[in-house]
């Protein structure tokens, strides 16, 4: 085992202490407050009154938009995490191959991550504006289209754009995690596979994926959490309009808290979201990690 001897039983905990302290003060304490607020009555302007039990949760579940928004959230998380993982994987494979200009390409791929989400969302919001957006500008002036196109004709399309932007900004994170995994694979594995007569797909299935999987696991868990909680893209591009049909859970609860002044149910919703995440991410982690250990 790759461990070192320790002198006292309590020593490891001492090492963990700063991190624990930091997180307890700045993350756990606010989480505690959220839990407390979720069972408190909160006035419209935000004054916290007493304990009211689970009324906030009942109201949250009864929210007319709750069903639509849960569905949207599922679509959002699955499509963004799923597609960005797939595309990130392909990107990593491409960036791992030897070709002219690889260093430049790698630097470019990190760009979307180096820009804050608010800015990314604003740029894309500008790009797809039908009236003066840049997509129409560039396509018209290059002669690709004959007349300006309304790129956000229906809310379904707008939601698809939002997912697209989500995927766009998530790819670099996945790509670099996978790339790191790819780089560490010993060429000997591939040579052995070639000798065995394995083609591209066989090598991918039997060598690449199994070896990259561990690094993907934690990356995916964090990704699920970040994407579920992602807020600026939807808030900037549609604000959930029309009628919460493009909202996800986090944007809905933000709108409920600060636009509709239903602060109690909004807080309850955030606890519900937390529970959902715990179950999903937890289940994912359990299954993948158990397999690894086995």
């Amino acid at each position: 085992m790759n461990t070192i001897p320790i002198r006292h039983k309590w020593e490891p905990y001492l090492w963990l202490l700063p991190s624990l302290l930091l997180m307890s003060i700045f993350v756990v304490f606010p989480i505690g407050i959220v839990f407390k607020l979720s069972v408190s009555e909160i006035s419209k302007s935000g004054v916290v009154r007493g304990f009211i039990g689970l009324k906030n949760f009942r109201d949250a579940f009864r929210d007319p938009a709750f069903g639509t928004v849960m569905l949207n959230t599922a679509v959002w998380v699955v499509s963004v995490v799923g597609l960005s993982t797939l595309l990130g994987f392909i990107t990593a494979m491409a960036l791992n191959a030897k070709f002219f200009g690889r260093k430049v390409a790698r630097s470019i791929v990190v760009f979307p991550w180096a820009t804050s989400l608010v800015i990314q969302a604003s740029v894309w919001n500008y790009i797809i504006k039908g009236e003066y957006g840049n997509l129409n500008n560039i396509l018209l002036n290059l002669g690709v289209i004959k007349s300006a196109v309304n790129w956000r004709a229906t809310y379904q399309i707008e939601f698809a754009w939002e997912c697209g932007v989500g995927i766009f900004v998530t790819i670099p994170f996945v790509a670099f995690t996978v790339l790191a995994g790819l780089q560490s694979i010993d060429d000997a594995y591939y040579e052995a596979a070639t000798v065995d007569g394995a083609g591209f797909w066989k090598k991918l299935r039997h060598v690449t994926i199994p070896l990259v999987k561990p690094s993907l696991t934690v990356c995916t868990v964090l990704n699920i959490i970040y994407v579920f909680n992602s807020f600026p893209i939807i808030y900037t591009i549609t604000k959930g309009a029309p009628a919460n049909k493009t909202d996800t859970m986090v944007t809905l609860l933000y709108m409920r808290a600060f636009y509709d002044n239903q602060k109690g149910p909004a807080t309850a919703m955030s606890v519900i979201g937390f529970a959902i995440l715990c179950v999903c991410a937890g289940a994912y982690m359990m299954t993948t990690m158990r397999k690894e250990e086995a």
Binding site: I42, S45, G46, V47, V48, Y254, A257, F258, Y259, N261
Partner: peptide
């Protein structure tokens, strides 16, 4: 502004 004010009130 609504976010900020209501957070401060809470």
């Amino acid at each position: 502004v609504y976010t900020e004010v209501s957070t401060r009130i809470q």
